[in-house]
Computed example of a mutant assay.
Amino acid sequence: MTDDWRELHATAVVADTHNDLLCAVVARRPDEWGSYFRQVWLPQLRLGGVDIQVLPVFVDDVFRPEGALRQTLRMIECAPRVAAENPRDAALCVTGAEIDNALSSGRIALVLALESAPGIGEDVELFRTLQALGVRIASFAHFGRTALADGSAEDATGGRLTSKGVAALELLEELGVLVDVSHLGVAGVGHVLEIANRPVIATHSSARALRDHHRNLTDEQIKGIGATGGLVCVNFFAPFLAESNATLDVLVDHIEHVVSLIGVDSVGLGPDFIKEVYAETKPAWCEAAGARVLGSPVRYLDGLEGPAGLPLVTELMVGRGWDPDGVRAVLGGNVLRLFRASFGTEQS
């Protein structure tokens, strides 16, 4: 059994749809971006067997609002430089064909995503510019309110998408950019599912039925995302998995719950690895501030603090009797299929 799960993980396409590592990379001088990625993150990604890595562009509060667009552009500039300075190991990809080419050559396919898009403000047309710069996934809010929608920590407002948010969704679908509902408030998720005409993704969300937290999705929302042909990629962050004592088993419980609702072909992994990013970029008091927003202490799963631990998920799924094809689908096969279909084969 040990050999079986190791071989399965090694031969599967492994996709992580949310790792904030770009925040840590861009915090350094531009001439250090490539070397820092190579020395600190690349070994972890290789140990974890990561083949597709979504890179969220997340702009910290210190840059908002005036510096948000500038920081967004800095992070977008960072990603191709990381790839260019590590050409044997990584490639920034904007089409399904480019992802396939990266995988066939043994490189990690990097995909840019906007997390809450504070640099957009009300200027929805800027999504067209950012798509041209390589962005292929976008969300409308984080914990708080934006010009497009309310985040999950504002659920009490009952806020749906604003008129600008509706316009943004329509433009993103036109551009072939996946709309991400992770972090979106309950009413906002419902609004997206009402009007979306293309697959929707939750890049890093777990099941509210197992952990009643505003960052998690209800069974109804999960089913709605599956009905669009999209994916729910399960979050590994311990406070979102259990009120206390989150474990690897609890994580796989969340994965299996989502699978039970929408099928094994509609589920992926969105680990949300932030421990090292926090340690590298934020003073200690930020964890306390973050705990207030989360409503619980900041905690991490033992062994899954970073991408090197991803094979543990495969080991447990196999140990629970999962079919190998199902394991491959959840590890990354589903993400690869959705990205191929959504991003097309040629750069626009």
Rank of each mutant, 00 (worst) to 15 (best):
residue 222 I to C: 13
residue 111 V to S: 06
residue 287 E to M: 14
residue 7 E to P: 04
residue 215 R to S: 04
residue 210 L to H: 02
residue 238 A to S: 11
residue 205 S to I: 04
residue 279 A to N: 14
residue 260 S to R: 08
residue 65 P to S: 12
residue 217 L to Y: 04
residue 307 P to L: 04
residue 150 D to T: 01
residue 64 R to C: 10
residue 11 T to L: 09
residue 191 H to C: 09
residue 275 K to R: 15
residue 143 F to H: 14
residue 272 D to L: 04
residue 256 E to M: 04
residue 95 T to Y: 09
residue 241 L to F: 03
residue 157 T to S: 15
residue 5 W to C: 11
residue 117 A to N: 12
residue 328 R to T: 00
residue 56 P to W: 01
residue 20 D to S: 01
residue 71 Q to C: 06
residue 265 D to K: 07
residue 94 V to A: 15
residue 96 G to T: 05
residue 187 A to R: 12
residue 306 G to S: 15
residue 103 L to V: 02
residue 113 A to D: 10
residue 43 P to F: 04
residue 25 V to P: 11
residue 70 R to W: 12
residue 39 Q to D: 15
residue 289 A to W: 10
residue 181 V to I: 14
residue 298 V to R: 09
residue 206 S to V: 01
residue 300 Y to C: 06
residue 147 A to Q: 13
residue 32 E to F: 00
residue 287 E to F: 01
residue 247 T to D: 13
residue 132 A to W: 08
residue 103 L to R: 08
residue 291 A to W: 01
residue 104 S to Y: 03
residue 270 G to K: 06
residue 256 E to K: 08
residue 194 E to M: 10
residue 40 V to P: 05
residue 308 A to K: 08
residue 194 E to Y: 03
residue 242 A to Q: 10
residue 216 N to W: 00
residue 131 Q to G: 13
residue 249 D to E: 15
residue 163 S to R: 15
residue 269 L to W: 04
residue 120 I to Y: 04
residue 74 R to I: 01
residue 230 G to Q: 11
residue 216 N to D: 05
residue 28 R to I: 02
residue 12 A to C: 10
residue 310 L to Y: 02
residue 316 L to D: 05
residue 164 K to Q: 15
residue 146 T to F: 02
residue 237 F to W: 05
residue 166 V to I: 15
residue 38 R to A: 15
residue 305 E to V: 03
residue 208 R to A: 15
residue 337 R to S: 09
residue 108 I to T: 11
residue 170 E to H: 14
residue 53 Q to D: 03
residue 323 D to F: 01
residue 27 A to K: 06
residue 329 A to I: 00
residue 66 E to D: 13
residue 322 W to Q: 03
residue 138 A to P: 00
residue 246 A to C: 09
